[in-house]
Design a protein around this nucleic acid. Structure first.
Lengths: 201, 201
DNA sequence: CAGCACGTTAGCACACTGTTCTAGTACGCT
DNA sequence: AGCGTACTAGAACAGTGTGCTAACGTGCTG
């Protein structure tokens, strides 16, 4: 009968966090007390399962990404690293959709974080999602660095930031008017970015 | 004798903020009380001159950009090609401004070409400005290709498109919330993009 | 010169945030 | 029964940004 009995506290916390993200969209905040209240759990209990908010965010984002990107071809060494990286980048890019959907995504992004009042929660919400994406891309580069030690691990954060900027640019260009050859151009840019990210030295 | 007499409160606040960024570097936080304490000013006084932390951040960032933007020219072969290219790219990027101005620029861009009805005149207007920027960047690369024939001229359009995408991404990121180390990150990305655009093969 | 207005300064108060800590409860095992 | 471990609850603490009010100058004006 009781909902609380049908899911472990940990799962209820994750479900509450996912629900908040699902409702509030990109501008979700995931504060301790908001998640705890939604999950009908005390902050202490939440902290017991997720010692840090970052741990909670990481776990919920991991599930979201895994749900959206079931097959991670990143480990398939039969195809070139740059192809695998481009595949991963394109999957991220596809989250913003194409055409009208891409325009709508960009409008929502701009409304949430550019037009909106630049309050601290808004700012922190964006930075959190940005850190998530940054960490994910660094993870990819680390996997690829395992195979090819020409990729300096110390430089991975910088390279990941470059990839993030390129993806932002591509997402913006998906929303803006484009020539019919836009898809080809996008692939070109993605491969150029991948080559830059995987370049030795 | 008294330092406080030699600089206006506003200037002391900005100097304190710049000092904090200069010292803490990437981890700079620019909290209200930290800046106020460093400037030996009350939080109320700080709030009077900078109604919001975002306003303070914008202003100090604007000065940082102005400071690290000395003049240089594309034809000056005494400085490396990548530095000259980065300078040109940054000039383009600066057209969108920083802080509130950058946000306003992005909002205007989105309103004009994303939110607006995707009619043919609108589309053509954007593509015209895009071609303009594209042509300008191709011109730069052609000048630089004159000096170093390792840069294949046939590939210039593709490389210029990549640069345009990176600039779009950076412009978007100027409008979005950012950490205080954004300027450094921007420089990193610009140099990475320049290296990619100037890479042989 | 008195009075007033306005810019400036100071500092507290408020509503948040994440984290730490203590107390109490429930369950399994020896 | 006793004990230990996992869990829950909630207060407390140190931060954050922002709003508010009171005081202090300084300059203008009647």
């Amino acid at each position: 009968m009781d909902e609380r009995a049908e899911m472990s506290t940990r799962e209820r916390i994750l479900a509450a966090a996912a629900a908040i993200i699902g409702e509030d969209g990109v501008a979700a905040r995931l504060s301790v007390r908001a998640v705890a209240a939604r999950a009908e759990v005390s902050t202490g209990s939440l902290r017991h399962h997720f010692p840090t908010q970052q741990v909670l965010r990481d776990e919920v984002m991991r599930r979201v990404y895994d749900w959206m990107l079931p097959e991670s071809s990143l480990g398939d060494t039969t195809v070139p690293a740059r192809d695998r990286l481009v595949h991963c980048l394109r999957q991220v890019l596809d989250m913003s959709g194409t055409g009208a959907e891409a325009r709508r995504s960009m409008v929502l992004l701009v409304e949430a974080f550019v037009t909106a009042e630049q309050t601290e929660p808004v700012r922190e919400a964006y930075l959190a999602t940005r850190r998530d994406g940054q960490g994910r891309m660094e993870g990819w580069l680390e996997v690829l660095a395992e195979e090819d030690d020409a990729l300096p691990v110390g430089d991975i954060p910088r390279r990941a930031r470059c990839l993030g900027t390129v993806l932002n640019g591509l997402a913006l260009e998906r929303a803006l008017p484009a020539e019919d050859s836009h898809a080809q151009m996008e692939t070109d840019v993605l491969y150029a970015a991948a080559d830059m990210a995987l370049a030795p030295e």
